[in-house]
Amino acid sequence: MNRRRLVTVLLVLGVVALFAVPLIAGGPADYTGTDNQATTVIQQQDPGYEPWFHSVLPPLSPSVESGLFAVQAALGGAVLGYVLGRLRGRRAVREASTSETPGAGATGDGPQ
């Protein structure tokens, strides 16, 4: 494994650990969203406050809501993957056409 790939793996592991460790070590917690907590604080600050406008959509069941969030993430992930794939393919084509110029560019540390 070359150094570049090792750094990538470590970065990914770092991100995973950052969120997995509190989940495992933190014990039981309900992980309420901060947005909902803020709404609770608003109601403590001003118990008489009534929201004066409501979402265009009726309140969704939690499962439908998390499904829609998954759709949002999937759409974004698809576009991001498409762009990165095209950029990578473009580089492959360019490298093939300038064929075998060793050490071309500052990133000539081997194929990924």
Partner: peptide, 28 residues
């Protein structure tokens, strides 16, 4: 255009994901 799409998509993905944090709350 491609990179603009990537920038938009990156925000789109990240703001959809709620992540747990050390405080026992989650946020995105």
């Amino acid at each position: 255009t491609l990179l603009l799409g990537a920038a938009g998509a990156f925000t789109f993905v990240l703001s959809a994901i709620k992540l747990p944090s050390v405080t026992g709350s989650s946020s995105h």
